[in-house]
Each structure stands twice: as structure tokens, then as C-alpha cells.
Amino acid sequence: MKAAVISGIGAWLPPDLVTNDDLAARMNTSDEWIRTRTGIRTRHFVSAGMPTSRLAAEAGARAMESAGTADVDAVVLATTTPDRPCPASAPEVARRLGLTGRPAFDVSAVCTGFLYALTTAAGMIASGAAEQVLVIGAEAFSTLIDPRDRSCAVVFGDGAGAVVLRAGEPGDPGALGRIVLGSDGSLADLITVRAGGSERPHPDADPERTDAADRYFSMRGREVFEHAVARMSESARAALAHTGWQPGDVDRLVGHQANLRILRAVAEQLDIPADRLVIHLNRVGNTAAASIPLALAHAHATGDLAPGARVVLAAFGGGATWGATALTWPSLKSV
């Protein structure tokens, strides 16, 4: 059975950089408050009308250039913020990349979305359905945020990261290990946009029945914190068990970039020294499904992630969903 091997990586951030001071000018918060509670200093926001497919295509093009390919057999997009509720955004991403005709679809698992999308793509490769798959995590998450909700408005950011997976052998550098995934639907209210789906109409469609605030994202921070630490730690342990690595063997822990304090707590639970954490949220905030590929791309570009490094990826997100995997970082072309 063919393994899925990372052969290229790319990222893109929308140009609009927003500092904590910029946010403090718009709402009752401060740089110090945001930094000490979240570790975030800056984030990027899409300009009005810039769709997720644009971000995804920019990152995807860079990943394909890094992989040295102008074609792939499929495009899988992980996103919480598709261009429209229907249809999926991946076909439009494929069109923007000159890949019209290729299979393209979205995967929805919020902040765990990129790991779910990797699993899907790896399955296509293992089954022989594809030789190369472009896997993108992209979010215009700021479009879900209530501008009056300062607890969420300071945390999230927009951006996209992507990898190309190719068919290879299990021992190849960059080969994904077993991807451990899980979910618990009883935790759906922890991380949610309540209205606009089949369960509850969008408030514009039915103002009598739906609160205007329900169109926006909401999160129960304290419970998310606890579940995130527990599930990311558990799934990372399970992923490590499949590789045979001990926690001390891990060179870089790339957790979903939700909150610096969650990342540190996960490292502590796993007995992985905190200096092995890849930290990117200070620059971009929480970019949901885009956070892991963005963090990988940044760490790769800066040399923080070197070829041969033993890497663990772990995420927790809405659903609730969670997952982890491990791989040895390959030698990739920087773009």
C-alpha cells in the first residue's frame, strides 16, 4: 500500500495586518490583555469580499510550486468558512489553479479540518485513486466573528496553508504516519455558529425565531481549553505509539494554534519540553483549519523545522473533533 508523502508546502496570508493596538482602538481591550491571555500579537484579516477560495488558491499554488508540479489528481479543502453555504469551495479553488476537471471537495472539521483532509487524501493515495493530492486548509474566519464579541474578535485570524501529498513508501521522509482521529457530537455547543444551517434559520430569514447574534461564531472557552488539552494529548500519544517514538524523541510539536497556554499544557501532559513547540499564533492568531499548515510552512521557511526532524501534529476543534499524526520532516523546496 502506498504511503502519502509530503512533497511540497506553501502558505498565504491576506495583506491586511491587524495588531492588538488596532483592535484596542475598535473595542475595549488592550495589547497587554490579549498577549498575556492568548500569546497573540498580530493577525491578518481578509478585505471585504475576499473569499476563502482566493486564499486557498494562493497557498495551493505555492505548495504546487514547492512540489515542482503543475498538476495534481485531486484538491481537498479543509475550511469552516466556504465561499458560500452551497456549493463547496474546492471546485472554485481548482478552477483558480487551472485544475478544472479534477475532483475537488471540501472537508469540514473546523480546527481539526486539515488532519481530516490529510486522512481523506492519504486514503485516495493508498487506494490508488490518486498519485498526487493538493490538501489545503484555508479560512476567512473573521467573517464569522461578531465585531462586538471581544473574547473571539481578538483570537481569530485569516489565512491559508497547503501541502502536496504524493504516493510514496512508508519509510520515505515526509510519509504521514497513522492519523488518529476522533469526534464527540455531544460537545457541538462548545464551538459553534448556531444559525444558518438546517437546524436553525439564519436570523435574516426568520428574525422572529433566531437571535441576531446566532449568525456568529461562539465558543465556551474554559471547556474548550480542558477538552483540547486532553484530546490533543491523548491523540498525540496514540500517534506516537504507532510510530514507536517516545515523547523525548519528538523534535517539534505542531499543535493547532488556538492558544499559547493550550499548547504549553499539551507539551507538559506529553512530557515534551516547551521549547520544542512550534509557535506561530503570535503572528497570525487562531486560523482554524489553516493553522497547522500555516505553522508548518512558517517553521519550514525559517529553518525552525529542518529535514529529518521528528514532528507530531495534533489538533482539537469544533464538532468536537480531534486528531494527531507523526512524520519525519522531508527536504522541501522553499517558495
Binding site: 491571555r37 497556554r261 504549553r264 499544557a265
Partner: peptide, 15 residues
């Protein structure tokens, strides 16, 4: 020590 910090304390103590 806000609510998240207390969870961090609890997790560390648990370990």
C-alpha cells in the same frame, strides 16, 4: 489566576 490559569494549575497538579 483567571479561570484558564486555574485549569492549567489543575492539569499540572494532576500530572
Amino acid at each position: 489566576l483567571d479561570s484558564l490559569a486555574l485549569i492549567e494549575v489543575a492539569l499540572t497538579l494532576q500530572k
